[in-house]
């Protein structure tokens, strides 16, 4: 039996437990709503979470996934966590919530079959994904900061241009008629 088969036998169960563990990071009254609707636009948080969880699980299991595919799958999810009301650690640790679930449902069987090393490799792949995600998290925060700066500039863009024109600002107005 190949290593990936150990993961795929329990895929739905593990994913459900993991996704619920992620939903549990939100306020209690909200958790129920996140579980209900599957519409990607009426319930975007749940959709983003499921999309990320499913691809991450496949990548961890050892399916052939390029970093770009994983990045794309977790992109919306990371963007979301990066602006929600979480500490950076709380935003990112949801990936690690998968580990205890895997140790409960997958590790014992693999250990029994003498494939503990393969299991540990899978956990290491999760570590790598978290690092990929951390890059994206940081980038997201930088975009937010940059957007604040851009917004301040844009609000007065025409005023500045006008002031440069009438106030004898030092720049050369090349090409202006």
């Amino acid at each position: 039996m190949q290593s990936t088969e150990f993961f795929f036998g329990v895929r739905d169960m593990v994913l459900e437990e993991w996704v619920n563990a992620i939903f549990n990071t939100y306020p209690f009254q909200t958790t129920g709503f996140l579980r209900t609707s599957k519409d990607p636009f009426a319930n975007p948080v749940a959709d983003m979470t499921r999309e990320a969880a499913s691809t991450v699980y496949e990548a961890v299991s050892g399916w052939d996934k390029k970093p770009s595919e994983v990045r794309q799958a977790i992109d919306r999810f990371i963007h979301l966590r990066a602006v929600q009301d979480f500490l950076p650690s709380q935003a990112m640790l949801v990936f690690y919530l998968l580990k205890p679930i895997l140790r409960k449902h997958v590790m014992p069987a693999m250990q029994k079959a003498g494939k503990l090393k393969d299991y540990l490799d899978a956990e290491s792949r999760l570590d790598t994904i978290v690092l990929l995600g951390f890059d994206m998290y940081t980038k997201s925060r930088e975009v937010v900061a940059q957007n604040r700066i851009n917004e301040i500039k844009n609000q007065h863009a025409q005023l500045v241009r006008w002031a440069q024109r009438v106030g004898g600002a030092p720049q050369l107005d090349e090409g202006q008629s």
């Binding site: 990607p40 636009f41 975007p44 983003m48 919306r76 963007h79 979301l80 602006v83 929600q84 937010v144 957007n147 604040r148 917004e151 301040i152």
Partner: peptide
């Protein structure tokens, strides 16, 4: 206003999500 940019990014998420689609 820019001081709540982070809040705006999450409250605008449903629109951003549809746009991204």
């Amino acid at each position: 206003t820019e001081e709540i940019m982070e809040l705006r990014m999450r409250s605008g998420m449903p629109r951003g999500n549809a746009l991204r689609y």
